[in-house]
C-alpha cells in the first residue's frame, strides 16, 4: 500500500487538492482510503465520503493533533489495509506551522498557497523542508511575477522537492500529482519507520489540564522567551 501524508498550512486547499487527485486515481482503477486527522471537529470527511471511498476521522480533542497523528499511524494503516486500499491518503490537521508529519518511506505532500506571504515558506519549517512534493495553490488569483517569486522561495527552503502548481477549484495539476503518487514506492509497513523530523515537544502542567497563569503553576518542559538576557526575572 502507498502511504500518502498530506500536510499544509490552514485553508491552503489540502482537501480540495486530494479530492481532485483521488478522482483520477479511482478512474485508473486504484482503490483509495482516506483518513482525516483534526482537533475538535471536521467536515472534510463528508467531502471525502462523496467519492464513495472508505473514510475515517480521528479527532485529537485535548491532545496535540500531530502527536495524536503519529501515535495512531499503525492503527490507521491497519484500518486501510482491512479495506483493501492500494493507496492511503492521510490528511493532517494542518493547524500549526511547526507541524512535521513526514515519515521515511511514505510520500509526504505539503500544500501551501500563494497568498500566505513571501516570507512564510521560511517560517513554515520542517513541514515544507521535509516534503517530497510541494503543491502550490491559488496561483490563479495572484500575478505571474508573484507566482515565480513564491516558487523560488519554496525552492530555497526545499530544493529537493517536486513543486506542482495546482488549482483547487478546477483540479488543474491533479494528473501530475496522481502520477507522482503512482511513482512512489509502496510501503510494507509503517511500524518501525522513522519521522523525518522530531515533533514539537510539550510536556508541561498545561498539557495535563492546568488553566491558571503564573510561574508557580508551571511544571515540566517549560520554555521561556529570551529577551536578550537582560529582562528575565
Amino acid at each position: 500500500m502507498r502511504f500518502v501524508i498530506v500536510a499544509g498550512t490552514p485553508s491552503s486547499g489540502k482537501t480540495s487538492v486530494m479530492l481532485h487527485t483521488i478522482r483520477h486515481l479511482l478512474k485508473d482503477g486504484r482503490s483509495v482510503a482516506a483518513c482525516k486527522i483534526d482537533c475538535l471537529r471536521t467536515s472534510d470527511d463528508a467531502r471525502y465520503r462523496r467519492l464513495n471511498i472508505p473514510v475515517a476521522v480521528g479527532l485529537s480533542d485535548y491532545i496535540c493533533p500531530d502527536h495524536f497523528y503519529v501515535a495512531n499511524l499503525e492503527e490507521i494503516e491497519r484500518w486501510a489495509q482491512a479495506r483493501q486500499a492500494d493507496i492511503l491518503v492521510l490528511e493532517t490537521a494542518g493547524l500549526c506551522h511547526r507541524c512535521a508529519p513526514a515519515v521515511y518511506g511514505c510520500l509526504s505532500v505539503c500544500v501551501i498557497d500563494n497568498l500566505i506571504g513571501m516570507e512564510t515558506p521560511q517560517k513554515v519549517g520542517p513541514m515544507l523542508s521535509t516534503a517530497d512534493i510541494v503543491v502550490v495553490t491559488k496561483g490563479d488569483i495572484v500575478s505571474q511575477a508573484e507566482r515565480e517569486v513564491f516558487r523560488y522561495k519554496v525552492e530555497t527552503v526545499n530544493p529537493r522537492a517536486r513543486i506542482l502548481d495546482f488549482n483547487g477549484l478546477t483540479g488543474q495539476g491533479s494528473i501530475r500529482l496522481k502520477n507522482e503518487i503512482l511513482k512512489s514506492r509502496p510501503l510494507e509497513t509503517i511500524t518501525g519507520k522513522e519521522l523525518k523530523y522530531p515533533m514539537p515537544a510539550a510536556v508541561c502542567s498545561y498539557c495535563a489540564g492546568e488553566t491558571i497563569v503564573g510561574r508557580t503553576y508551571q511544571m515540566g518542559n517549560v520554555k521561556k522567551v529570551d529577551f536578550g538576557g537582560l529582562e528575565q526575572c
Binding site: 500563494n114 497568498l115 490563479d140 488569483i141 495572484v142 500575478s143 511575477a145 516558487r151
Partner: peptide
C-alpha cells in the same frame, strides 16, 4: 522550465505589500 505558461487575467491582483521597485 519552471513555468511554461504565464497568465494575465482579470481576476489576478498583486497581494504582496511592497513597492514596485522592491518587487521587480
Amino acid at each position: 522550465l519552471r513555468h511554461l505558461v504565464a497568465q494575465v487575467s482579470q481576476n489576478m491582483n498583486f497581494v504582496i505589500d511592497m513597492t514596485i521597485e522592491e518587487f521587480l
